[in-house]
Design a protein around this nucleic acid. Sequence first.
DNA 1: CAGAGGACGGAGTCCGAAACCGGCGACGGT
DNA 2: ACCGTCGCCGGTTTCGGACTCCGTCCTCTG
Lengths: 228, 228
Amino acid sequence: MMGGELKRMDLTMCTTTHDPAPLSVEECERARLARDPAYDGRFFTCVQTTGIYCRPICPARPPKPENVTYCTTAAAAELSGYRPCLRCRPETAPFSPAWNGSQTTVARALRLIEDGALDGPGASVDGLADRLGVGARQLSRLFRKHAGATPLQVARTVRVQRAKRLLDDTDLSMTEIADQAGFGSLRRFNTVFAEVYHRPPSDYRNRKRKGRGSPTGHRALNPEPLRV
Amino acid sequence: MMGGELKRMDLTMCTTTHDPAPLSVEECERARLARDPAYDGRFFTCVQTTGIYCRPICPARPPKPENVTYCTTAAAAELSGYRPCLRCRPETAPFSPAWNGSQTTVARALRLIEDGALDGPGASVDGLADRLGVGARQLSRLFRKHAGATPLQVARTVRVQRAKRLLDDTDLSMTEIADQAGFGSLRRFNTVFAEVYHRPPSDYRNRKRKGRGSPTGHRALNPEPLRV
DNA sequence: CAGAGGACGGAGTCCGAAACCGGCGACGGT
DNA sequence: ACCGTCGCCGGTTTCGGACTCCGTCCTCTG
């Protein structure tokens, strides 16, 4: 024992605010050997031979019972001289900031894409992943999990939306709009826009303007409703 | 015509040092429409409508015959006011420096790996590719093509060789050798070394030293030959 | 105390398949 | 003459599955 942590049966004397019932050593033993997620955060395992403390769900090889004591909080374990396990990271409980780490990464990525991180020569998903400090494959996984779309799908949507606003709100040329929207070429702008709106961008702009009337008041005959 | 380049049949008057026989316009026409690699570098196609000149093997849509004239050199085409095509890049002929580009990239990568670019926390193939200015997937392809092994296979070989030299030439501990050889943990060092030499590193060192005699002159009984 | 090795899951690596991308040229409309 | 659209094209990028690598923990031995 390194001091201060509860010995075997002593757990019955100690509860935490979210623990409706005190835990027996036997219950802790069962829970950690089973890696039962329901007990995650309810107690911590202190390993005397290594000086490390863990969550009940730690995937590391379970230490022998005679080498173990239990604590109800991470703080108590640290006060007793144990350091957090680098596998299960007991200092990051569910719903803690660390738990939100990957979601935060995706949120940052989405902002970067809005800001054009995937546009222009040399821009790439590899490069974006690097800026975020994660592997490209891992970023892909996080996008699928938290955003339900791939980074390029997000970027393509953002580009089309920018182009649409520029078509509606400016008299810029197609070439200029393609460039400012983040497309690397007029060719790609035409292709992607047509895929989304089923017509070329200039046609979209013309119909949009005819639909709200020209200065002469003439309306387009049989205006075709926009399909998106 | 933009000036200076040879009109149709005039090619018969013009040869280059590596062209044993002059080319007819018909022959040029056939060669460019067929994208015949044998003619690459022997003549260049000048497109009047766009002001661009190409190699016979250019994958772009073949221009109409009436829009085409021919030159025997890239320089002649440029003197006539044409600019090089950004697809087939006529200014980069086979065996030119540009052609050697990917081989040079792999050579640089190998040097970087020797220098530990794939060792240590945060090191990755993604990161190496980024330093070389190519995509990770593309780097993988180039390694397969020019080195016959993957980046990690190369790195692993380099690490083991470093470790072997340190075992032979120093009295460093296993932990220290693992670290200096580029392994992130003693555990990995043990595993990889055993895969290559079929014994743990300390065993290798002991046998190697017994094999060349100790200061007392005692030789190991029945020394087992090293298998690599 | 150092070293070896079993166990483990997250992240990285590798690869094939598919999509994206940008360039070229033709053509039509203004 | 210029702008815009679109067919065509091949190199590179993207994506996701499959698998490996990796570092950590723990035990045990010398």
